[in-house]
Simulated assay, not measured.
Amino acid sequence: MRVKGLIFLVILVFLCTALGNSYVRYLVEPGDKLFNIIRDYNIRISTILDFNCIDDPRCLESGQAIYIPVRDGFFYDVQEGDSLEYIAKLFFALVEDIMKANGLSYSSKIFTGQRLFIPLEAVSVCSNVNISTQYSWPVYGKISSEFGWRKDPFTGTSTFHSGLDIAVQQGAPVFAARDGTVIEAADNGGYGLNIIILHADGSKTRYAHLSHISVYSGQRVARGELIGRVGETGRATGPHLHFEIIDSKDQCKDPRSYLSSSQYMYVRKEPGSLGLGGK
């Protein structure tokens, strides 16, 4: 049954590629393991988790449908007011790579609800790494609330804000700010859907209020790897990413001290340049 399933999926991939579709539908057979499926088709597990609602990648149900991109990469549904340039910044990608992957040109118009494919090799090529700390911005957006004491948006009282809030629309991609191992990927009360990554020096980063989690506990991730999508789950007043940096003594630190200037969240690296620009 396993061999027949593989043959069927190969045929579907060929047909969908010929028809211009970007993914195929695979029905889980008894004994199937997600890790074997992604190995067979050279797709990373975060890609599959990003495009599917899978509670536990270690346990699949027979007959469950899994959607598998023909190429490794991610999908983005165009929202009102989006431009190709802005979408490229959300994925820290080059607009030329997105146009090529979707058969678009500089004169092409995009429309609300249109689904674009962002190839894996295009993602995070324009992220800006702070050389001294090795952290990069986890999302492209606007700072809506700083680290430190502030007026609580729900109670109006003065409370300590343990992270940095970055406002951006629902469904925007979230990336690992530093290499590490996922130690939590679940709903966590006021944080909503959240991810915690443990780094080699004992520090941690938290990514909260997500709409979707694209990693699992125990997974190794690299800086710039897509790990989830922006949302407003938990105690939130609108879509944004709550981002924390926690040192090895479990003390929250101001992320501004570890990230590059917010003016350079996105850096278009040109041959022979210093890597600055593209605010």
Rank of each mutant, 00 (worst) to 15 (best):
residue 161 H to C: 03
residue 142 K to D: 13
residue 107 S to K: 08
residue 111 F to I: 13
residue 154 F to N: 06
residue 192 G to H: 06
residue 110 I to Q: 06
residue 203 S to Y: 04
residue 180 G to T: 01
residue 202 G to Q: 12
residue 159 T to F: 07
residue 195 I to T: 04
residue 174 V to H: 01
residue 168 V to R: 02
residue 157 T to L: 11
residue 194 N to V: 04
residue 143 I to F: 01
residue 219 Q to C: 02
residue 210 L to K: 00
residue 175 F to I: 13
residue 142 K to R: 15
residue 179 D to V: 06
residue 158 S to G: 03
residue 160 F to M: 04
residue 110 I to W: 03
residue 182 V to E: 01
residue 206 R to N: 15
residue 125 V to D: 08
residue 172 A to L: 00
residue 115 R to P: 04
residue 198 L to V: 05
residue 118 I to F: 01
residue 119 P to I: 02
residue 202 G to C: 11
residue 209 H to C: 12
residue 175 F to M: 12
residue 128 N to P: 03
residue 180 G to A: 02
residue 134 Q to D: 15
residue 190 G to S: 13
residue 192 G to V: 09
residue 123 V to Y: 09
residue 210 L to M: 08
residue 213 I to S: 00
residue 197 I to T: 03
residue 174 V to Q: 01
residue 173 P to R: 07
residue 176 A to H: 03
residue 122 A to N: 08
residue 190 G to W: 11
residue 152 D to L: 09
residue 196 I to K: 12
residue 140 Y to R: 01
residue 217 S to I: 04
residue 169 Q to H: 11
residue 143 I to T: 12
residue 196 I to C: 09
residue 197 I to C: 05
residue 136 S to L: 14
residue 134 Q to M: 14
residue 139 V to Q: 04
residue 169 Q to T: 10
residue 149 W to S: 09
residue 196 I to W: 05
residue 176 A to F: 04
residue 114 Q to C: 09
residue 139 V to R: 01
residue 165 D to E: 13
residue 186 A to Y: 13
residue 191 Y to R: 12
residue 133 T to D: 03
residue 136 S to V: 10
residue 125 V to G: 06
residue 217 S to P: 01
residue 115 R to M: 07
residue 210 L to V: 00
residue 151 K to N: 14
residue 194 N to I: 02
residue 118 I to K: 00
residue 128 N to H: 13
residue 195 I to R: 02
residue 179 D to S: 13
residue 118 I to T: 01
residue 160 F to W: 09
residue 144 S to W: 02
residue 168 V to L: 01
residue 139 V to C: 09
residue 115 R to D: 05
residue 212 H to F: 08
residue 205 T to D: 07
residue 182 V to A: 04
residue 175 F to C: 13
residue 167 A to I: 11
residue 150 R to M: 12
residue 129 V to D: 10
residue 108 S to C: 05
residue 216 Y to W: 06
residue 199 H to R: 06
residue 192 G to D: 09
residue 162 S to R: 05
residue 205 T to L: 06
residue 196 I to Y: 06
residue 212 H to S: 12
residue 141 G to W: 02
residue 145 S to C: 07
residue 119 P to W: 00
residue 185 A to V: 08
residue 150 R to H: 14
residue 164 L to P: 07
residue 111 F to S: 14
residue 219 Q to V: 06
residue 194 N to H: 05
residue 169 Q to L: 10
residue 153 P to D: 10
residue 165 D to W: 08
residue 170 Q to P: 02
residue 168 V to N: 03
residue 209 H to T: 14
residue 155 T to D: 06
residue 121 E to R: 13
residue 138 P to F: 06
residue 111 F to C: 10
residue 221 V to Q: 02
residue 153 P to T: 07
residue 192 G to Y: 03
residue 158 S to V: 15
residue 155 T to L: 10
residue 136 S to T: 15
residue 210 L to I: 00
residue 181 T to I: 15
residue 183 I to S: 14
residue 207 Y to N: 09
residue 134 Q to L: 14
residue 222 A to E: 12
residue 113 G to N: 07
residue 127 S to T: 14
residue 151 K to P: 03
residue 203 S to R: 07
residue 212 H to A: 09
residue 123 V to I: 14
residue 125 V to H: 04
residue 202 G to W: 07
residue 174 V to Y: 01
residue 212 H to T: 12
residue 220 R to Q: 10
residue 166 I to D: 02
residue 174 V to R: 00
residue 166 I to E: 04
residue 134 Q to T: 10
residue 188 N to A: 11
